[in-house]
Design a protein around this nucleic acid. Sequence first.
DNA 1: CACCAATATAGCAATTCTCATATATATGTC
DNA 2: GACATATATATGAGAATTGCTATATTGGTG
Lengths: 118, 118
Amino acid sequence: MNAVNNIVFFEAASKVLKALGHPERLKIIELLQTGEQTVGRIQQGIGLSQPVTSQHLRFMQNNNILASRKEGTSTYYSLASDMIRKLLECMNSCRLDLETGEMQMKDIFPESKRSKHE
Amino acid sequence: MNAVNNIVFFEAASKVLKALGHPERLKIIELLQTGEQTVGRIQQGIGLSQPVTSQHLRFMQNNNILASRKEGTSTYYSLASDMIRKLLECMNSCRLDLETGEMQMKDIFPESKRSKHE
DNA sequence: CACCAATATAGCAATTCTCATATATATGTC
DNA sequence: GACATATATATGAGAATTGCTATATTGGTG
């Protein structure tokens, strides 16, 4: 693993993280954990409008978080990579730690005040 | 774990992920894996200007990714939570999978074309 | 072909990010 | 107090993100 590959990795990984960094998108990802879903079902599942749902899906597909396949008039979206699955596992493990009290909500939820520029 | 907590979790987690979703910030986080560092050292380590470095650090602190303490004229930043450490572990594990060929770069790096709206 | 259902895209306004430059603050030393 | 060092903040410009409304596309059915 050389420096160049490191840079590539950071670039790639940060895109993935950024694409995950939106509450609705995170919900979508969770939804897809159990398998592929159509746009319609995803939309129902998270309660967003159809265009916004589509936009999030496209965004995630462009960042290689999701893959899709068409069947008739439907499009099925699914998790695209092992990395996503690993990250999801990690998130779920954290959520479990919260439930068991092993981790505190304050450990991940900022109560900090923001200045204008964050 | 009820619905409300889920929402809180998604909100919190997505902020964390978003704050991690920037190549330079990811580098900073990696740098801090081995322990706290001053702003100066971090700046050297990643090669950014002092103000930009400070801004990234503030952003991450506001999103509870980092903690800081002052000593003399220096400020030491460090990883703020177990969640971050877990996510870091996960990322490093993925990087290892890349090295061993267990995972392919294409699994996390998008080659997809972008439309105007991503 | 007309029409419907499912999904995608365009275009726009508001907000947020990111980086750069300039300036401020705080601490330590002489 | 004058000054240097380390860090933070203000501010502004350009880009990216987000969600909305309207419209387009595509496949299936009669």
